[in-house]
Write a protein that binds this DNA or RNA. Structure first.
Lengths: 152, 152
DNA sequence: CTTGAAATTTCGATAAG
DNA sequence: CTTATCGAAATTTCAAG
């Protein structure tokens, strides 16, 4: 799909504030509200824009503990297997296959250390997991929800 | 601040779709639209809801390469130092101090391997960085923008 | 094929109960 | 918190570039 500079600016504006009106966006990109809506609809159906979400402070809803866990897997483990296995756990907020020593990196978010330990235990129980190495997050320094290239 | 079950359900609905109307949300939580708006306003000013954003497919906007980099730092490096240093780089989408071997974990997103290498080089040039260990993301299996505890 | 303008419907914000 | 109201925004339709 083709994305022009106007689309990029619209995307950037929606990332900054998903609730801004089409008229507001239109004013900034020199287009009418319906024209903006059509572009947004097109971007949505093309999958460029996956959706709109609220950014929530995890601590405020009681999720105070976070960790990144490196997974070491048995020889013939497929990414698909890791995907379905990690997706099962509600504590998993991110999961990636990676190059390097480990086979996968899993981002966990839990209520507290006890909850985290329990989630980790469940992860380790997956049949293809041979071992894990955990990094507990001490403080979150940066966390951008999404990133778009700078307009221009 | 106090968050009740209704607030939690409202948050969950907004995470699922930040553009749903107050009336729609109200219908699902058995409240009127103004009542929902008041709660959302309260949650926003309390910082529980940080904002609303569009979820964008990074690949669709030309960011095809991703990596997690472990930072090893000199003895007296503070989290604040790491924060300001990592925040400077536009490729950094996440940055955390962690327990374990490394001192920090940095999540990078770049256009391609060349761009990633360049960003990594800039990171390694930070005075307090003694060494790094990179995990290049081969495939993204799970990536939830945010997570809220299951309602109920 | 995309835009802009007008018309209709829906939504948001506020006041009152 | 709810109902009611007014102004604004979204959405559809349609005509024009």
């Amino acid at each position: 799909m083709q994305i022009d500079e106007v689309d990029q600016r619209i995307i950037a504006l929606l990332v900054a504030d998903a609730r801004s009106s089409y008229a507001d966006i239109g004013a900034r990109v020199s287009l009418s509200a319906p024209a903006v809506k059509r572009r947004v609809d097109r971007l949505r159906s093309a999958g460029v824009i996956r959706g709109f979400t609220a950014v929530v402070d995890p601590a405020a809803v009681g999720w105070n503990t976070e960790a990144f866990v490196e997974l070491f897997c048995t020889g013939r483990t497929t990414p698909a297997q890791i995907a379905v296995a990690t997706r099962r756990h509600p504590e998993v907020v991110g999961s990636y296959t990676v190059s390097g020593e480990a086979d996968a990196l899993v981002h966990l978010r839990a209520a507290d250390i006890g909850h985290l330990e329990q989630a980790l235990e469940r992860l380790r129980a997956e049949p293809f997991v041979t071992s894990t190495r955990s990094m507990i997050v001490l403080s979150r320094l940066v966390e951008s929800p999404t990133v778009v290239p700078a307009p221009g």
